[in-house]
């Protein structure tokens, strides 16, 4: 799947959790949503794109980008450190 589509979907998820008054909790919820409903390859593709592509980093909303960085291990499992 293309990173563009995944960025769009991730930002959409982020837009829901933005209302959460506790940003830390919001970031956790975003990551858990992706962990629960996204196939591992989708999570890996997005994080890989975030790692290597400045455009992707810029396209991601702050809250979502922070969630991906902060919860990298949750999202990638054992591949997080690869």
């Amino acid at each position: 799947m293309t990173p563009d589509k995944l960025v769009y979907m991730a930002n959409q998820i982020g837009s829901y959790f933005t209302t959460d008054p506790q940003p830390e909790h919001a970031r956790q919820q975003i990551a858990e949503h992706m962990k629960k409903f996204w196939a591992p390859s989708m999570r890996a593709t997005l994080i890989e794109a975030l790692d290597r592509d400045a455009d992707v980093e810029a396209q991601l909303d702050d809250l979502v980008r922070q969630a991906l960085i902060e919860h990298r291990t949750l999202l990638l499992g054992s591949a997080a450190n690869a």
């Binding site: 799947m1 629960k36 409903f37 996204w38 196939a39 591992p40 989708m42």
Partner: peptide, 8 residues
């Protein structure tokens, strides 16, 4: 782990 949804 979850799989693909239809649009995926």
């Amino acid at each position: 782990e979850p799989g693909f949804r239809v649009p995926n």
